[in-house]
């Protein structure tokens, strides 16, 4: 990510060391290739948000908050509510992060996570309509990155999914043309649990859940999101490197297998 320093000499030496270790099936932090870091999820910690979740994935920390309001639907989807994911790397998240509007990395991060939530149909947007074509629920999920140590994609995705799974939204009612807040809180129409798995290719090895140190030397990155039925529902290759077709299939297999494991962790943490 942007918030990582690139240092050519150290990076080159470190990469040689990592490749050597990986050839022996080891990683610099002692994990195996397919092992993710410890995942910790806390939910409902921001009382003023309709839903919230703080996720720690190793030393990467992110917090997501859900805000629900009403607004007009998009012209091409008059019968669906509006759901948007936004991400920002806060300037306190890393010595290399800077304040300012989201750069291309933050935009890619938000859009890839958004794609996973949207394409898996995690939230039934057809249940978020008040007056078709005129008034719908608008759901904003904003993610703030608090500490950068690699794999912001998965940490952000887990935070968004956990926040939505535990969110309670205000119940609005439409009377003719008028929309009023009933003051009641109801759970979100959540129907799926998408799980994002991000992998880095370092040399010929594909590792799951890369740290910032691994990301600094990786050749290419791939994120694949799966749903409860173990379909692949979103994906993005990143960085100026390549994958062979066989490596793409290997990544898909890993995403399905690891996704299954992490889905149960997320479900357990979010009841």
């Amino acid at each position: 990510m942007s918030a990582v320093k690139k240092n050519y000499v150290v990076e080159t030496l470190r990469k040689a060391q990592m490749v050597e270790l990986l050839a022996k099936g080891k990683r610099v932090d002692g994990r195996s290739q397919d092992e993710t870091r410890a995942l910790k999820i806390e939910t409902r910690l921001i009382e003023k948000a309709n839903g919230s979740a703080k996720v720690s994935l190793g030393n990467t920390q992110v917090i997501a908050g859900v805000k629900v309001a009403t607004g007009t639907p998009f012209a091409d989807t008059p019968d669906k509510g509006v759901l948007m994911v936004n991400a920002e790397v806060l300037p306190l998240a890393s010595p290399y992060a800077e304040a300012g509007p989201p750069d291309e990395n933050a935009i890619e991060l938000a859009r890839v996570v958004d794609r996973g939530v949207r394409e898996s149909e995690m939230v039934d947007l057809s249940k978020l309509v008040l007056i078709a074509g005129k008034s719908v629920y608008t759901v904003f999920v904003d993610v703030n990155i608090l500490n950068v140590d690699g794999n912001l994609f998965d940490a952000t995705s887990y935070a968004v999914v956990s926040a939505l799974r535990t969110a309670k939204m205000p119940k609005f009612e439409a009377n003719g043309e008028k929309v009023t807040n009933t003051g009641k809180l109801v759970p979100f129409p959540v129907q799926k649990t998408p799980v994002s798995i991000t992998m880095a290719r370092i040399g010929s090895i594909i590792v799951v859940d890369p740290t910032a140190e691994e990301e600094a030397v990786m050749d290419a990155r791939i994120t694949l999101t799966t749903d409860d039925e173990e379909n692949i529902c979103a994906g993005q290759k990143g960085e100026a490197g390549t994958f062979t077709p066989a490596q793409v299939m290997e990544a898909a297999e890993k995403a399905i297998r690891k996704g299954r494991e992490l889905r149960s962790v997320i479900k357990e943490a979010t009841g």
């Binding site: 794609r115 949207r118 394409e119 898996s120 791939i222 694949l224 749903d227 173990e230 379909n231 692949i232 529902c233 979103a234 994906g235 993005q236 290759k237 390549t242 994958f243 062979t244 077709p245 490596q247 793409v248 898909a252 297999e253 399905i256």
Partner: peptide, 15 residues
């Protein structure tokens, strides 16, 4: 070179 340089996925795909 048979190297994939871009891959994006959306929609529901069985393996």
């Amino acid at each position: 070179l048979n190297q994939v340089t871009l891959l994006q996925v959306d929609g529901i795909y069985t393996p």
